[in-house]
Nucleic acid binder design. Structure first.
Ligand SMILES: [Mn+2]
Ligand SMILES: [Mn+2]
Ligand SMILES: [Mn+2]
Ligand SMILES: [Mn+2]
Lengths: 157, 157
DNA sequence: TATCAAAGTTAGCTTGGGCTAAACTAATAA
DNA sequence: TTATTAGTTTAGCCCAAGCTAACTTTGATA
């Protein structure tokens, strides 16, 4: 069909070129993957106990408490939370938004992985790694897919 | 049903506990994710041109050539390749095995992502990140799923 | 009110991975 | 054979993230 290509004239790249392109995507965001992990845990802790102490963060991320302190300082510096020495932390809007995003990605991934038969523990393990590497487009498509699969399991057409 | 649980008595963990478990999986392998990326590119280069020069590696990983040299030394040290100053490198069996594994994971992921409607470029980008975070069980389940889907699509036409 | 343990912080170190500038090698061209 | 130069390596730096040991703060209890 004459007008059917819809901009899909994307001259097929070699695998190496695809890899080059993938590795040349720079500075995506103003935070690291590790920051995302800390924010995620802080978010879950606040949801579950109302606050996030350093010992708890350190337990659930499996790091020492000095590492937690240092990261709190960085996250304060980057505007993801307000940190007051010895007193505690509070997520800023920016921090909460990143955290919530991680929570949702993790949810979606675990749901998908379990859907294709991966065991709970492994699903969570892999989700914890994968959650940081999803382009918004992928996220959207995966959401659609999971929704479709849940419904159409039999109505499948 | 009395005997239907098949060991699935896995007392449901809280999200935080799942995250703790995920983050407490240590020393998986004797190499880092970054090493996997280098090995993958080296593998593709050898497949395509017969050898892997530092300039090419540096181009496709988007890093400087001193960074390549340093990593070659590490990979030699860790037994993934044989490195001879100024002369070149050769993958060992260990290195080739890691490299091939990355190649296959990348393939599988791109296939899956395109399957759910993600565009080529984005699929490759995300695959490049995700490929390092797949448990063998996940890998197997994803393979099965993709195979099943390919068939079903045809059967379903 | 004074004490003390638990929680948090600081100091100082390590490691992986990155960079630029400068030095070196090896293959080719003259 | 020598000079040139592209490709490679070394030196020396940076940063994120981790750790242990030592110190400080806070809040509860005597
Ligand atoms: Mn997560
Ligand atoms: Mn994570
Ligand atoms: Mn890849
Ligand atoms: Mn990769």
């Amino acid at each position: 069909m004459k007008f059917g290509l819809k901009g899909k004239l994307a001259k097929k790249e070699s695998r190496l070129e695809a890899i080059r392109d993938a590795h040349s995507v720079q500075g995506r965001t103003s935070h690291t993957y590790r920051m995302e992990d800390y924010l995620e845990v802080i978010y879950e802790l606040i949801k579950e106990k109302g606050y996030a102490s350093a010992v708890d963060i350190s337990e659930y991320l499996n790091v020492s408490s000095p590492s937690v302190t240092k990261m709190m300082q960085r996250l304060d510096e980057s505007g993801h939370l307000n940190y007051e020495k010895y007193r505690g932390i509070m997520l800023t809007d920016q921090g909460a938004s990143v955290a919530k995003s991680m929570h949702e990605r993790h949810n979606l991934l675990v749901e998908f992985l379990k859907m294709i038969g991966v065991k709970d523990e492994v699903a969570n393990r892999d989700a914890e790694g994968i959650e940081h590497h999803l382009h918004p487009e992928t996220l959207k498509k995966l959401e659609q897919f999971v929704k479709y699969w849940k419904k159409g399991k039999k109505a499948n057409k």
